[in-house]
Design a protein around this nucleic acid. Structure first.
Lengths: 214, 214
DNA sequence: TAGATTGTTAATCGATTAACAATC
DNA sequence: TAGATTGTTAATCGATTAACAATC
């Protein structure tokens, strides 16, 4: 089976396609051409067709794309047709924010546990999930089939905790700590570096100010 | 003055360089070669030199780069030598999480206000900043010089609020809402789409499972 | 001075866009 | 059938890597 590697750039655009198609679906739009979609999304029609054809021919000449069908197919590509059990390590504001995102649940990401070191959080529940103490993590992972762990803890603890998670068989880490994680290559890591994002914003402000002589 | 446009890819890597240099600095490392840094960061030395030379020659032949100097210079490029006044719209978990990030304050991002529609939050303070009601937003912006607004509100309100912010003279929006914002091009928008990130993670899990026949 | 390492040019690689034949 | 629009190949553009002369 010939498996061409799909570029990171393409994968990075899929969620955005998915989002726009979801909106079209909600708006009751039945079909859309790459050209019309390209205008909405401010990308080229060529790129849309090229991107989609990495995964197969979802359209029809002379017709365009069926919104519902394409939405579902991209969902499948993104793995949203599966169920994903998830835990959150770090029940601070950010961990709680993630725990409260009802939309994740709708996409098949099921929160099964919340962990923290702070004893004052013990027993507190978020959306019915009690916060457990970190001491219970290993045992919990032994008895529950968890795929994804979100790491919403400070950088100082992140690497150590990541190692525990990997040793306990976690497949994927959604990392919010302000550090890179160097883990075995069969562990999937997706990092959200909020401060990197804020710095990019700040760069663009500086650039803008320079150009406008401020 | 010849201003070459610097590619988004390069800018996206700057915060990561900054992060690694900060760690080297903390570790007391005085100088580093592009080669040594490339090994630490898993990128090519060529890319590091190429990236940095977009902004000027920060190194010295035969010596490498002075860590402290390079750290400071990248900080300047990123605009971290300026002060940035900031507000947060949406004082839910995510807004509070951002408000509590002490490290932003250290980098010159000063939180000046927090806004929400929920009357139960009125008067509640986070790090000494009281939550204000949305009705007060326009007046507040008239009397305070705010550069950045973080939008941590649901998608349904985001576009409307963004328009108010722009009309009130906000320069930059750090958008966490699950939607793209179409604003005048002189307004800088940096979006953090958490669900896009989770979908990328999910994609990679599916891909991995396929490859390993699960 | 000799060795090390940058800054920068040239070569390669990959991603995006354009074009158009295939086909609904 | 004629018109529309895809899927796909070819052309272009940009980003990354390699190479090396400049120089500390």
């Amino acid at each position: 089976m010939e498996e061409r590697e799909i570029s990171r750039a393409v994968i990075g655009r899929l969620p955005r396609y998915y989002r726009y198609l979801g909106e079209l679906l909600d708006a009751g739009v039945e079909r859309i051409s790459s050209n019309d979609l390209s205008k909405k999304m401010s990308v080229t029609a060529s790129q849309i067709r090229q991107d989609l054809n990495n995964f197969g021919g979802f359209g029809q000449q002379g017709y365009g794309y069926n919104v519902k069908y394409l939405y579902t197919e991209i969902g499948k590509i993104l793995g949203l047709n599966r169920e994903h059990n998830m835990i959150i390590i770090g029940a601070g504001n950010l961990g709680q924010a993630l725990a409260n995102y009802a939309s994740f649940e709708k996409s098949g990401f099921h929160l099964k546990g919340l962990f923290d070191v702070n004893p004052r959080l013990e027993g507190v529940s978020i959306r019915g999930i009690p916060v457990r103490m970190m001491d219970d993590l290993k045992t919990f992972l032994k008895h529950n089939d968890i795929e994804i762990a979100a790491l919403t803890i400070p950088k100082s603890k992140a690497i150590e905790v990541a190692d525990i998670l990997v040793a306990s068989g976690i497949k994927a880490i959604w990392n919010f700590a302000h550090t890179d994680l160097n883990l075995p290559e069969d562990v999937i890591v997706e990092s959200v570096h909020l401060s990197d994002s804020l710095m990019k914003l700040s760069y663009n402000i500086s650039r803008y100010n320079e150009e406008h002589g401020k």
